[in-house]
Amino acid sequence: MKQEMVDRIKNDPDFIHLVKTRSKFAWTLTIVMLVIYFGFVLTIAFDPSILGTPLSAGSVTTVGIPVGVAVIVSAFILTGIYVRRANGEFDELTARIKSKAKGE
């Protein structure tokens, strides 16, 4: 890539907007995933009895079962949220940046 093109893209408001919103979005989702996972694991490390509580009086199924499944499902949903926005909004921005970089 030529320096002149680097400078042009670097100062493109679309590029600045893309990088800013996407990295904020990616970091937010990363932190959500880390909080969910380490929250789950540290709950187990510090007080495992919370997850061992029966769901209702007399039931064998514990709180831990739906919580564990929810952690798995949350990982899938978070990736879905990211892919949806990245493949739509962010890719449109990228396409615009690309065509400007080629065209001008």
Partner: peptide
């Protein structure tokens, strides 16, 4: 279940980062 969850949660991070 706890163990397998550990293997899964790396994937969203790979995607985001």
């Amino acid at each position: 279940l706890i163990y397998s969850i550990g293997f899964l949660v790396g994937w969203p991070i790979i995607l985001f980062m």
